[in-house]
Design a protein around this nucleic acid. Structure first.
Lengths: 196, 196
DNA sequence: TACGTTTGTAAGTAAGTGATTACAATATTA
DNA sequence: TAATATTGTAATCACTTACTTACAAACGTA
């Protein structure tokens, strides 16, 4: 195998984890299988990550940066709350669709709850997402377009289930839900709760 | 260890799986740990179940019978749709709270997607739940109390996320959500979508 | 009581896991 | 160019996994 820098190898390894999860399922992300998919020896994996756990940690950091980052951008832009909500939902669903392995990896880690640090990282990701949604809702209320008697946190909770359900349907039944359509339909429902 | 019938042992084994998941996390349901918790030798486990997979299968069958059964009872009773919806939601949340291990086990199996038969069983459970919700919504529309322009399937999708989110919050943050309160708050939101 | 069936145990099995080692080949830099 | 740091490999480690085997004890029943 030709030599590559640690930076490049780390990206390859993290990508391989997500690809394997999406293609073969979670139980196949052994370091052996990982090395095989990249075309590298198993020892080389441990040249670029000290432990397997650190690979997972790296992926979680990517989610925190990429997904949360892009969602934050949407929320912070000066736009109408209704438009932001729609874009937010679509972006969220799109990201999960394009990184199918991620939801499974995240919630598997939650379910295994062996590792406090990973659990804390996941908690952080979910918390930040919730705060962004709460902010959007409150902005909409300030704009005067949404019912001020709704509890922003309740909206955040019911919202969080949407991308998760989408992902589960996607895993169980690959062509179960049309993403664009799905996005707009769920948006309509949420809006009905929010409207005056 | 004193002798017990296979029926009793099977129940003990299935219960132990769920208890271990709730207490120690999914990665600890090894046959060794299972035997230890019951106070039995590992070999005895395989006296009562041919494979570990059959234990999981047995648990899934229990869910299909117990949870889906009790939800079906609620839906089929001659009552107002609004009352049924509330009871349905509360029963669903209650069951997941009392059998904390189940949601994790189910979605872990989905994520590992190695086993077609288990995946099919999970699909069936989710499908039946969805059908029950759709029926409830359509009943409410027939009664004339709910907006007939809402898509019953969309309601089912957004509904499905609620118990899942509840469970995730419960796993990550043990006292995160008050179940009774939670139930009523989510009910209020769904009702706002459904109302004329 | 005698006999066949059921339920139990202790000690194994082969296969897979994450991680390490000793060493070779390739870059980087003085 | 010579010395050094980096990236690669093959072999192997100790450990865990689901599952099996050989045999013993307890049970129902004739």
């Amino acid at each position: 195998m030709s030599r590559e820098t640690t930076d490049i190898r780390q990206e390859q390894i993290k990508k391989a984890v997500l690809d394997i999860i999406a293609d073969e399922g979670l139980q196949n992300i052994s370091t052996r299988n990982l090395a095989k998919r990249i075309g590298l020896s198993e020892g080389a994996i441990f040249r670029h990550f000290p432990t397997k756990r650190d690979i997972i940690k790296g992926i979680m950091d990517d989610v925190a940066n990429d997904l949360i980052g892009s969602l934050r951008n949407i929320v912070l832009k000066p736009e109408k709350a209704e438009d932001k909500l729609f874009k937010y939902l679509c972006q969220n669903v799109k990201y999960l669709k394009e990184n199918r392995g991620i939801t499974m990896l995240l919630f598997s880690e939650a379910a295994h709850l062996g590792d406090k640090e990973l659990k804390e990282k996941l908690n952080q990701i979910l918390y930040e997402q919730k705060q962004l949604i709460i902010k959007m809702v409150k902005d909409g209320i300030s704009e005067g377009v949404w019912d001020k008697s709704v509890n922003a946190e309740d909206i955040a909770i019911i919202y969080m289930g949407i991308p998760i359900t989408f992902n589960i349907e996607f895993v169980l039944n690959k062509n179960g839900l049309n993403a664009d359509n799905f996005c707009r339909r769920m948006y309509t429902l949420i809006l009905k709760i929010l409207k005056n």
